[in-house]
């Protein structure tokens, strides 16, 4: 051992214990990015992900503060811890970005998606679809004699599960908003 507590012959990583070494395991993180709502700001954020090869699993954006002209972009992304750190640092140094929150590490957060499902069918399948919609607390927002449009809100898992159930019952089309997320508590 040298005076710096480095094991002789260790390679790849310095053996210093200030930080755990980078893990190669991919993680999914939900980021909330507060930006100036100016032209091109979304292109800038998406361009960063495309240009540097980061993943976007889900993306939602809307103006959340009309007087301050701020928008909130919620991005779900997947990568190794090092990549996730890079993404946050890269976002944080963009000029129109005011805040970057990693909801996955900043404590508990609620995440919700809204989805619309068009299901077409007659007879037993139609009745079954309506029954399942009730179980999932989906609302019927449009109906004809041969179709329904259901509106469902919930976690991504819940929306996915509902989609799986609707598929054999005549799922024709679906639209999903992507995830909106907020930290719990004050």
């Amino acid at each position: 051992m040298s005076p710096l507590n480095i094991e002789k012959g260790s390679s790849k990583h310095s053996a210093y214990d200030l930080r755990a070494s980078f893990s190669e395991v991919e993680e999914t993180h939900t980021l909330a990015v507060v930006v100036d709502n100016e032209p091109g700001v979304l292109a800038r954020v998406i361009g960063l992900f495309a240009g540097r090869g980061y993943n976007i699993d889900s993306l939602t954006v809307a103006e959340t503060d009309h007087t301050g002209h701020r928008s909130r972009i919620t991005i779900v992304t997947t990568g190794t811890p090092q990549v996730i750190e890079q993404i946050k640092a890269q976002l944080g140094r963009m000029v129109p970005v005011h805040e970057v929150h990693d909801l996955t590490v900043e404590g508990a957060a609620v995440e919700r998606e809204l989805a619309l499902f068009k299901v077409a069918g007659r007879g037993e399948a139609r009745v079954e679809a309506l029954r399942l919609a009730d179980v999932f607390r989906a609302n019927v927002v449009d109906s004809t004699l041969e179709s329904f449009v259901f509106e469902i809100t919930g976690s991504t898992q819940k929306v996915d599960a509902f989609a799986e159930l609707m598929r054999p019952l005549g799922l024709v089309e679906m639209a999903r908003t992507g995830i909106a997320a907020l930290a719990r508590g004050t």
Binding site: I6, S10, S11, S14, L18, R19, A89, Q90, R93
Partner: peptide, 25 residues
Amino acid sequence: DFSPNSIKAHIDIDPSSINKVIRTD
């Protein structure tokens, strides 16, 4: 194989430069 036995300090004004390619202690 980059500097395998060293502790690395990194002074930089750009947060995205730190830990980008080499882990900094």
